[in-house]
Design a protein around this nucleic acid. Structure first.
Lengths: 215, 215
DNA sequence: TTGTTAACATACAGGAGTGATTGTATAGTC
DNA sequence: GACTATACAATCACTCCTGTATGTTAACAA
């Protein structure tokens, strides 16, 4: 029965994918290891071999989405950090939307995180992690907004730290509404305009620049 | 053993309060009716008498917070709707913060809603309700922003519907971050400035008005 | 090639929760 | 003052899940 290392890794990935499917349908708490195992085509023994318990499996599943997302955010902010900081932030937000729209797995996992998990006991650590990551996100945004301020691109009188928290709250709320909005009428269809409108509200007013499409 | 109607109502309220306490500590899914009953000083029989199941109890508990909150929002938006629409929105947001800061029960229930409940099966209806309420919130905000636009108070070129969704996302994100931020460093201490900054970003720029504290 | 151990499968022990049912004393009601 | 419905309490029957321990086979190292 012993598989090769690559086979084992495939099994591990299948278990994670299976967990995401069942979590999304039944919620983390109501999902048994047996159900995950069946969905992955293995037995509970295999699942317990790869993951000590449900919390560790959840943790691994979450990281498959959050780590790439953090990388993407860092990349976008760093890339534009040299030139147009506000444009970089806009691109970063659009990038999150792209991920949501194009990757079903990303959608699914974020839906689990937001609506299908209770952060108590072993899962309380997940909340701590979430708080930490949110703090880091605010820090990165603040850095970008400080650059924007130095470049005179930030709205007059607006503190970069406040702008950072504004954008963080906006992002959190946008994602949450987007995930909830399966019909599309709430925010999904206007998400990109929304991002532009949000960033526009933080941008310094350029005197007498003609708004696009107003001619 | 039969109590008077008022006694029964008191029992009902005690059960709801007990549920909130145990839900907040253990999560909705991991809380048994027995635990709620013990906390309320009754038996499971009493709990099942007042509520058919855990979902109905959860529903009742949630409404003790959401109904007053909706009323408060409506009141704030209506009151200021005649004069300063943007000021009314700012007041409305500040009112939400007031409720969070001053009412422990409100905090607790919102924490349960955001972090201690899985919206699947019987609880999926809660998500539908949430989506509905969010949609209504956007509608009310859009109405206010339309008035602001007519009064010339809205930023030039900004569609009221976009502003409404921006503020809705901001609100959702702010509440979620606020609930998470028990240390206070993330947003709690700056929440009021944040609200002002958010609304300021949607306000039309008044030509040559001296910014406060810039003299 | 042989021993070791990774990568699972199978079996076991145990606890916990739900909903329904039944019991019962008393507050309303006529 | 008798009857009935109310507001619970107590019990039962049933289901489900977790963690661990042990069994098994094949990959890999020496």
């Amino acid at each position: 029965m012993r598989r090769t290392k690559e086979d084992a890794e495939k099994t591990r990935q299948r278990v994670i994918a299976a967990a995401a499917e069942v979590f999304a349908r039944q919620g983390v708490g109501r999902t048994s290891m047996e159900q995950i195992a069946r969905r992955a085509g293995v037995t509970r023994g295999a699942v317990y071999w790869h993951f000590a318990n449900k919390a560790e499996l959840y943790f691994a599943m979450r990281e498959t989405v959050t780590l790439p997302m953090i990388d993407s955010v860092d990349l976008a902010l760093k890339r534009g950090g040299e030139a147009d900081a506000l444009g970089a932030i806009e691109d970063m937000l659009t990038g999150i939307l792209d991920a949501l729209e194009s990757h079903r797995a990303t959608r699914r996992v974020l839906q689990i995180i937001h609506y299908k998990c209770e952060y108590v006991d072993e899962f309380a650590a997940e909340l701590d992690m979430h708080r930490l990551r949110t703090g880091e996100f605010v820090t990165k945004l603040a850095r970008a907004y400080r650059k924007a301020k130095l470049a005179g691109a930030l709205r007059a009188g607006l503190q970069p730290e406040l702008a950072a928290r504004d954008t963080c709250a906006f992002t959190v709320g946008l994602i949450r509404m987007w995930l909830m909005d399966e019909g599309g009428v709430l925010v999904r269809r206007q998400a990109r305009s929304l991002i532009k409108a949000h960033v526009a509200g933080l941008r310094a007013v350029r005197p007498r620049a003609p708004p696009p499409g107003s001619g």
